[in-house]
Design a protein around this nucleic acid. Structure first.
Lengths: 113, 113
DNA sequence: TGACGGTAGCTCGTGTAACGTGGTAGTGGT
DNA sequence: ACCACTACCACGTTACACGAGCTACCGTCA
């Protein structure tokens, strides 16, 4: 069933990453594991790294290189003010779509047709 | 604000059309107006007609040509059994994403990290 | 008759996102 | 020296939303 999620995830995963970063700054590899943990098993590094690069290009995050004991240094991403605004906007848009979908589903035909 | 909805609507609008057709059979032009009425103002005919053709190709709808007094004949779309199944699947996927997003937002950190 | 406006349908091009595949590189353990 | 794990990145494919443009039917009004 979870194979056709792809299209519906567009735009959503970026919001997820923003929310994760709002909770706590993190880096690519960990974000992937976090997303997998909550159920987005299809989100691999090939999905997450482009998102992070997008966020960086849009200046929604601050990036710091941090050395790690295991493996190469990590690029730690932290949400900045613009990122927080983008996150708020994301949730607004989500709420909007969510409510409209509810309207269509429940069919509160207050008018015409 | 509603200008950046596009990406988040991917996959969702098809579900909306399915739901609209489940409520009552309809045709392209009317579906566009219906979507606009509930708030999806960006959904134009250039968006809806490809969706309808997709549904037809996937055999989720039955199509009938109906003459109209005003303008050219209408292509009336009606959901069939497979369409109803697709609709159910759509709501399942929506519920899935919706719940996971809720988890991430509310941060019910029941485990690790 | 001819011009207009609303109805109805369709096509094409563009932009963007998810995601698979594969590639590079640093680290520690054996 | 080898391997596994961590971390990052690049490329190509696929799919969708949407704007812009086109055709065509009908009734009304000039």
């Amino acid at each position: 069933m979870m194979d056709e999620l792809t299209e519906m995830l567009k735009g959503v995963l970026e919001g997820c990453v923003l929310q994760i970063l709002a909770h706590q700054e993190s880096y690519g590899y960990q974000i992937v594991k976090e997303l997998n943990r909550v159920g987005f098993t299809s989100a691999s590094d090939g999905t997450v790294y482009p998102i992070l690069m997008r966020l960086e290009k849009k200046n929604l995050v601050d990036v710091t290189k941090v050395r790690s004991e295991l493996g190469p240094p990590r690029k730690v991403y932290a949400l900045n003010a613009a990122g927080l605004r983008a996150l708020a906007s994301f949730w607004e848009r989500w709420e909007f779509i969510s409510s409209r979908l509810g309207m269509i589903k429940e069919r509160i035909d207050q008018n015409d047709r």
